[in-house]
Simulated scan of single mutants.
Amino acid sequence: MKRTATTVLPSAPDPASARVRVSPTAPPLTRIPRLVGLLLVTVLILGLAACGGSATTTAGNGAPAPQEGPVVRVGSLLDSEGTLLGSMVIQMLDANGIKTEDKTKLGTPEIVRAALLAGEIDATIDYTGSGQYYHQGEEGDPKWKNASQAYEAIKKLDKDKNGIDWLTPAPANNSEYIATTKALSEKEGVETMEDLAAYVKRGGAVKLIAAQSWIDNPLGLKGFEEAYDFTLSDSQLIALSTGNTAEMLSALAKGTDGINFSLAYGTDGQLQDLDLVILVDTKDVPPVYEPTPVFRDAIIAAYPGIPGILEPVFKSLNQVKLQTLNARIA
Rank of each mutant, 00 (worst) to 15 (best):
G189N: 12
A239L: 08
I278P: 01
G82M: 13
F314H: 04
R3S: 13
L196P: 09
A50P: 00
A197E: 08
S262N: 09
L232D: 05
K254H: 11
V22G: 01
L40D: 05
G305D: 12
A49V: 15
G52S: 06
Q149A: 09
L274T: 04
E194Y: 09
L106K: 05
V313E: 04
S175K: 02
L276A: 07
A264D: 02
Y265N: 12
L249D: 06
T6S: 14
L232K: 05
F224T: 00
A301K: 12
S11G: 14
G119D: 08
I90S: 01
N173H: 03
A302T: 02
A211W: 04
E138C: 01
S87Y: 01
P33C: 06
G62P: 02
L325P: 00
L221G: 03
Q212E: 11
P142W: 04
P291R: 03
Y199W: 01
N96W: 02
Q67V: 05
F261T: 00
R113P: 03
W144L: 00
N174S: 09
S87D: 09
H135F: 03
E68P: 06
S148I: 02
E290S: 11
L84D: 05
S185F: 10
T58C: 14
N326R: 12
E138T: 00
L184A: 10
L263G: 03
D297R: 12
T292S: 08
E68G: 10
K201V: 05
N162S: 11
A253D: 05
V200Q: 07
P286T: 06
V288I: 12
P28V: 08
L249G: 03
A5F: 13
P286M: 10
T57W: 06
V206R: 11
Q212P: 00
R328M: 15
A123H: 03
A18P: 05
V206W: 12
T83P: 00
L157Q: 10
P307G: 08
N61Y: 08
D141N: 10
L279W: 08
V313L: 15
K187F: 07
I306T: 03
V41Q: 12
E101W: 04
R21S: 14
T42G: 14
L39K: 01
N173Q: 04
L85M: 12
D281R: 01
E68K: 14
V112M: 07
G129W: 02
A55M: 15
I238L: 09
L38M: 14
I98Y: 06
G269K: 04
G305I: 13
T6P: 02
M248N: 11
T58H: 14
L317E: 05
A12D: 15
T192F: 08
A183N: 13
Q132R: 00
T25D: 15
L240M: 09
V320I: 15
T30G: 09
K159H: 13
E247A: 09
Q236D: 11
G137H: 05
A16G: 15
K207A: 00
F224L: 13
L279N: 03
P66I: 05
G69F: 08
A179F: 08
A264E: 02
M1T: 15
I32F: 04
A205I: 05
K315R: 13
T181W: 12
L78Y: 06
G269F: 03
V22R: 12
P109T: 00
Q236Y: 11
L252V: 07
Y303V: 11
Q67E: 12
